[in-house]
Design a protein around this nucleic acid. Structure first.
Length: 510
RNA sequence: GGCCGGUUCGUCUAUCGGUUAGGACAGCCCCCUUUCACGGGGCAAAGACGGGUUCGAUUCCCGUACCGGCUACCA
């Protein structure tokens, strides 16, 4: 019997969750759900200096918005609690000590200043960043170079120390990455990473391995930036005697900045004017807010969809997938090896597609909120639904509904009389005066009736409808936008239509 | 510098050795529409380079170039 699939997303709570982070969650989630497994969120808060208040809540709010609910987490609980590494602090030391006893790790007493000095001393043009490795460890102050007596007295004196892994010389370690196939490293290139810090906290390297083992993680997916530290983790799985339980790895391609090269960062979004975080994030230190996809007006369905397509496709021409379809069709083997530049235009296209294909009820709440943000409170729900149906095809982001539809709920605030005036004359004035009378008398108020009356009246006055529809539109909505003019008139009703025509006529007299 | 990874239209990508190298976004044109969209049709646009292997390479191998990641008591 094969083990139940268990995957985890292990963020450190240092700020907002960006595209790459959410995509990693998504791929974890899709894989887990497809395999009928568990999706775990574990908070990796072992670096107290980088801890940011509120970041953890933000992560869970983001997951909720995206519809990526964990099965186990500090918030959801679970059989392997606690799910916050700071709360698991005590359990890591024993494994580090176990490694020391077995000769796979050692105590190192070097101070930060001494490390700095070492790096400066051995730095050369060919080797700009000397590593604490098989060779240099011989020159440092650690339990490998110091006498047993000295080490134990240091320890009992309470001298600060870290525990470092003792990487072997010239061994090949390799593993099969689900995306990249076999990847191998020579251990001579791997340095003696710190496993346990002087403050007693584990580093990421020790903590992932221990927790993945303890939490029975079967598949570990993370960004490509982790590939170089894979050999350290491999060695740890081996030295801890857990090799048989090591998860299968997949290193996800990076999401790159749209222009130039390099990993996409928060700064790129600020610079180029698009969101990078899933939701608004306010830095508690600077009180600076970075806008998120949610607040920008993206539907979570579209956000998930566009993230999934950044590095994956199902081999067909289909690009629109619901969460259900993604769960069904996703496969790690089809994930691209190369990084993908983020294209905001394409991202917006996904949202547009989702707005078009969503039912009006699905859109109602979001659209209502967007109106309320602009001070337009909507009381008539049926009217709202009608308006959404009428304008959704021309809305890319949720706030577009305001531009495309505010005039259904209130008279246009700004009326572009300037584009009417030059071509305005008495004949047109006459026409609209007559139109008011005709509409006042009309008993039918459907789009087709209004259009028919309008055109008949135009013909009677020997005017081209085309010259009249432009001013009519501006009367009704204030400018050259919005759905069909007669649709608008039909929806806003007789009184409002007449009122707006009269208003414009008045404006033109002055 | 070293190690690891990557490389198909401007961008995201399809191709499991044989294709006029396909689709989508963006761009341009036309139709529809007397607004703007939506929709429909069309144009333009790609295998980094050099060697192999092969009857045949975008596809497999090697090298070069370029890009990226990592090289912390950060994740």
């Amino acid at each position: 019997m094969s083990k139940k699939v268990r995957v985890r997303f292990a963020p450190s709570p240092t700020g907002g969750l960006h595209l790459g982070g959410v995509r990693t969650v998504l791929f974890n989630y899709l894989f887990a759900k497809q395999m009928g497994g568990d999706f775990i969120v574990r908070i990796e808060d072992t670096d107290q200096t980088r801890f940011v208040a509120g970041a953890e809540d933000y992560i869970f709010n983001t997951l909720k918005w995206c519809g990526l609910e964990p099965d186990e987490s500090p918030l959801h609980g679970g059989p392997y609690a606690p799910y916050r590494q700071s709360e698991r602090k005590e359990s890591y030391r024993q494994y580090a000590e176990q490694l020391v006893k077995a000769g796979y790790a050692y105590y190192a007493f070097d101070t930060p200043a001494e490390l700095e000095e070492m790096r400066n001393k051995f730095k050369t043009a060919e080797n700009p960043s000397p590593q604490y490795n098989q060779v240099l460890r011989e020159k440092m102050r650690n339990s490998l170079t110091l006498g047993e007596q000295e080490v134990s007295s240091f320890l009992s004196e309470g001298m600060p120390y870290v525990i470092r892994i003792k990487t072997p010389l010239n061994e090949t370690v390799s593993f099969t990455d689900m995306i990249r196939g076999e990847v191998s490293f020579n251990t001579s290139q791997v340095d003696d990473k710190v496993l346990l810090k002087a403050d007693g906290m584990p580093t990421y390297h020790l903590a992932v391995v221990v927790d993945d083992y303890l939490m029975k993680i079967t598949h570990a997916f993370r960004g490509e930036e982790w590939l170089p530290s894979a050999p350290v983790h491999l060695l740890l799985w081996k030295y801890l005697g857990w090799l048989a339980d090591m998860p299968q790895w997949a290193h996800l391609p990076l999401i790159l900045k749209p222009d130039g090269n390099g990993k996409l960062s928060k700064r790129d979004g600020d610079r180029l004017g698009f969101p990078v975080f899933a939701m608004d994030w306010t830095d508690p230190a600077t009180h600076e807010t970075t806008t998120g996809f949610k607040e920008k007006g993206f539907l979570p369905e579209a956000f998930v969809n566009l993230l999934a397509m950044l590095g994956w496709n199902d081999g067909t021409d289909n690009e629109i997938f619901s969460m259900e379809e993604l769960i069904h069709k996703f496969s790690m083997e089809r994930v691209h090896k190369g990084g993908a530049k983020f294209d905001y235009e394409k991202a917006k296209w996904y949202n547009h597609e989702w707005i078009k294909k969503s039912g009006v009820e699905r859109l109602e709440l979001g659209v209502r909120n967007v109106f309320e943000e602009k001070g337009i409170v909507i009381t008539d729900s049926n009217l709202l639904l009608k308006v959404i149906e009428l304008v959704k095809d021309r809305c890319t982001l949720l706030p577009d509904f305001v531009q495309q539809g505010s005039f259904f709920f209130q008279s246009p605030a700004v009326i572009d009389t300037d584009s009417v005036k030059p071509k305005w004359d008495d004949k047109k004035n006459m026409f609209f005066t007559e139109l008011i009378r005709a509409y006042e008398l009309s008993t039918l108020w459907e789009t087709s009736d209004l259009e028919k009356e309008f055109k008949e009246l135009a013909a009677a006055n020997q005017l081209k409808p085309g010259e009249l529809m432009a001013p009519f539109r501006i009367m009704l909505v204030g400018g050259k936008f919005g759905p069909g003019v007669f649709d608008i008139a039909a929806v806003i009703g007789k009184n409002e239509t007449i009122k707006r025509i009269e208003h414009m006529l008045q404006l033109l007299q002055n």
